Computed example of a mutant assay.
Amino acid sequence: MPNAYSRAQMAHDDTDSIRLQKLLAQAGFGSRRKCELMITEGRVEVDGELVTELGSRVNPKTQQVRVDGSRVRVNPNHVTLALNKPRRVLSAMEDPKGRYTLRDIVGDKYERIFHMGRLDYDSEGLILMTNDGELSQHVMHPKYEVEKTYIATVEGRLSGTVCRRLVKTGVQLDDGWIKLDHCAIIDATRDFTMVKVVLHSGKNRIVRRIFGSIGFPVKRLVRTQIGPIKLGEIKPGSYRVLSQTEVRALSKEVGL
């Protein structure tokens, strides 16, 4: 039975194979020189076996590569997007009612791409999309509960005391108790308060339900971050392709 290194050597005959250090560089681990050092230091595994010799080749479609125990995910057919959803866009790829959807933003450029999670029709901000089924499954699985950050504008003058209570004790909704991980007032007027909210729950309309339950209806809601991925400067109705470094950080966040 060939070990991982001999299987890697056999990949020389595979047209989809590439040098191991090149794959690591493409995955965002640094320069090829740095990746070569990682290999010789014994930090890289191929199919469960250490590879310490330079020059080996691997097929990222069929072989599993790990660095320091973490999976390296490089598949040239996979793409992951960060999209800024405007208000009144449906978090779906199609709509029988003819409403504007995510498909209208990304078009047909990427095969089998789908959104990881949703934002309600009147909310805005970051949505992640991918055609990597394993990544999508992990990001949306309740087990991992990826941290999400929102900027909410609510009716009324919200006090710091209320913010602290939402973090410390939370509120009881129809489907149980829920607490915020973080709540901070950004700005306030007599009629409105802008607040930064961080929580792990992915329940439907959860931020609107939390503030609505205590008498502060949400007038505007923007999601600015999912795990390590930030909305940044993406304009509403636009998107960008995540770098391999970002995909690797997201994958690590959800146990891949």
Results as ranks from 00 to 15, higher is better:
181 D>A: 09
181 D>R: 13
183 C>A: 15
183 C>W: 03
183 C>N: 05
184 A>K: 15
185 I>G: 13
185 I>S: 13
185 I>W: 12
185 I>K: 09
185 I>F: 11
185 I>M: 08
185 I>A: 09
186 I>C: 11
186 I>L: 14
186 I>E: 15
187 D>V: 00
187 D>K: 01
189 T>C: 11
189 T>V: 12
189 T>W: 10
189 T>P: 07
190 R>M: 08
190 R>E: 15
190 R>N: 09
191 D>P: 00
192 F>M: 15
192 F>N: 14
192 F>L: 15
193 T>G: 12
193 T>Q: 08
194 M>Y: 01
195 V>W: 09
195 V>T: 05
195 V>F: 04
196 K>R: 14
197 V>G: 03
197 V>W: 01
197 V>I: 14
197 V>P: 07
198 V>D: 07
198 V>H: 04
199 L>P: 09
199 L>N: 10
200 H>A: 00
200 H>R: 14
200 H>Q: 09
201 S>P: 06
201 S>Q: 08
202 G>F: 12
203 K>R: 15
203 K>W: 01
203 K>T: 03
204 N>L: 07
205 R>V: 00
205 R>T: 04
206 I>S: 02
207 V>A: 08
207 V>Q: 08
208 R>T: 02
208 R>I: 00
208 R>E: 06
208 R>M: 03
209 R>T: 07
209 R>V: 05
209 R>I: 04
209 R>F: 09
210 I>S: 13
211 F>V: 02
211 F>A: 09
212 G>A: 02
212 G>K: 08
213 S>M: 04
213 S>P: 03
214 I>K: 01
214 I>Y: 01
214 I>F: 06
214 I>M: 08
215 G>R: 04
215 G>D: 04
215 G>P: 01
216 F>H: 15
217 P>H: 12
217 P>V: 10
217 P>N: 10
217 P>F: 13
218 V>Q: 02
220 R>W: 02
220 R>G: 13
221 L>Q: 13
222 V>Q: 15
222 V>G: 13
222 V>W: 11
223 R>D: 08
223 R>M: 02
224 T>F: 06
224 T>W: 09
224 T>K: 10
225 Q>P: 02
225 Q>N: 15
225 Q>D: 09
225 Q>G: 03
226 I>M: 12
227 G>W: 03
227 G>E: 11
228 P>F: 07
229 I>C: 03
229 I>N: 00
229 I>F: 01
230 K>Q: 11
231 L>P: 06
231 L>V: 03
231 L>D: 10
232 G>L: 05
232 G>N: 07
233 E>P: 03
233 E>K: 15
233 E>I: 12
234 I>N: 12
234 I>A: 08
235 K>P: 07
236 P>H: 04
237 G>R: 09
237 G>P: 14
238 S>A: 14
238 S>G: 11
239 Y>Q: 01
